[in-house]
Amino acid sequence: MDALRHLGQSFPLARMGLDALSVALPLAALLAFVGLNFMSATARALAVTRKRASYEKCARQLALLALLMGWLLLICGRVWLFFTQGSYTPDSLSDFMVEMSWVMLGLAVLFNSLYFALWKFLVKLPMLHVGLGVVSGIQACIATAASLAAARMLMALARPDADMLTLGHIYVPGFGTPFWCALFWSLPLTLAVAGGMGAFWLVLRRKYDDFGRDHYNTMLPWCSMWARNAWAVFWVILLASSVFDVQREWQSEAFTAMDAVLESAELLLWLVPALLWTLVARSATPMRHKLTLLAALVLAVAVMLPFYASMTEITMPAVLTEGIE
């Protein structure tokens, strides 16, 4: 850890890059872990309703990816806590929330492991198996909410005016703050990142899971459409929040032509993943779009930075601000 700190002091740009990756990658993996549980359960249900074996094979491939991600997050999270957190303080609310988020993640990984391990034993009980996958996804949602709540608490405690903030100020900020925008983004982002990672995972598994060309020509567009549709919902919410912000800044005469250009460029940039996934979904040869899927996934992971910043940003209430002044 000391070597990493020394490296960060010697190379500030490298430190900024590592900080960005340390936020974007784990958060993207956590959201994907949540979404993959629901995605796998959906594919498992479609295997029954549509009577197509490709959906069951895809469901198991996605469940394997969720299993690997879950255990990786659980182990790396424990290692990170060991090196960054001090000794556990029973009376500390922040320490309790951090430990509880890891416990909730452990329960989600346990349910996901059962969902994957009992695959052959629940072949004749597909709806029970689907239900187990849904329960795993719900528990993963609880773990994600607990993790983000702990991160928000730590961010609040790091403020110089932390003693003036209450739990209501931290977790129920005023409407229109970045927290609410991130909250509305969370569900479509979770499903979109899961679909993007699932599609890229199928490309990587082509040589190991030889299910035939028809399987991948069917399931790769399905995963891409899943990601595209969820990302479209996210982009519409992003567009609505941008219009709200522009209108508010326009009324305060703080909105300039340069702000309009930057806002438009940002909206167009975040539209690109949906276009790339659409290209794959409509292609007759989706397996040839490896770089397209990778580019869409990289952009989707990049969104984790503004998502995390908005989710953990603590907005000082106006009453407290006036009190300080």
Results as ranks from 00 to 15, higher is better:
Ala199Lys: 04
Ser264Arg: 09
Met258Thr: 05
Leu279Trp: 09
Ile75Asp: 05
Arg5Asp: 15
Leu271His: 03
Trp180Met: 07
Ala162Trp: 12
Trp222His: 07
Val303Glu: 07
Thr218Tyr: 12
Pro26Ile: 13
Leu74Ala: 15
Phe82Cys: 00
Leu239Lys: 01
Phe179Lys: 03
Thr190Cys: 15
Lys57Phe: 09
Thr89Arg: 15
Ser40Leu: 03
Leu74Asp: 14
Trp235Ile: 05
Met316Ile: 08
Gln247Trp: 13
Leu191Lys: 07
Phe175Val: 11
Leu118Tyr: 08
Arg152His: 02
Gly196Ser: 09
Ala14Cys: 03
Gly131Cys: 06
Met97Pro: 00
Asp91Glu: 15
Trp235Pro: 01
Ala260Val: 07
Phe82Glu: 05
Trp201Asn: 03
Ser186Arg: 13
Val303Ser: 09
Arg206Ala: 08
Thr190Tyr: 13
Met100Ile: 07
Arg52Trp: 05
Phe175Met: 11
Lys51Thr: 07
Leu110Cys: 09
His289Ser: 06
Val193Arg: 06
Thr42Pro: 01
Arg206Gln: 14
Met304Val: 05
Leu74Glu: 14
Met1Ala: 12
Ala32Val: 10
Val319Tyr: 11
Val303Ile: 14
Ile237Gln: 08
Thr256Arg: 08
Ile138Met: 09
Met304Cys: 14
Gly8Lys: 11
Thr144Pro: 01
Val193Ala: 10
Asn112Ala: 14
Ala151Cys: 04
Thr177His: 00
Ala240Asp: 02
Tyr308Ala: 07
Val246Gly: 01
Leu293Arg: 02
Asp91Val: 15
Met1Asn: 10
Ala162Phe: 12
His289Arg: 12
Pro90Cys: 15
Asp245His: 08
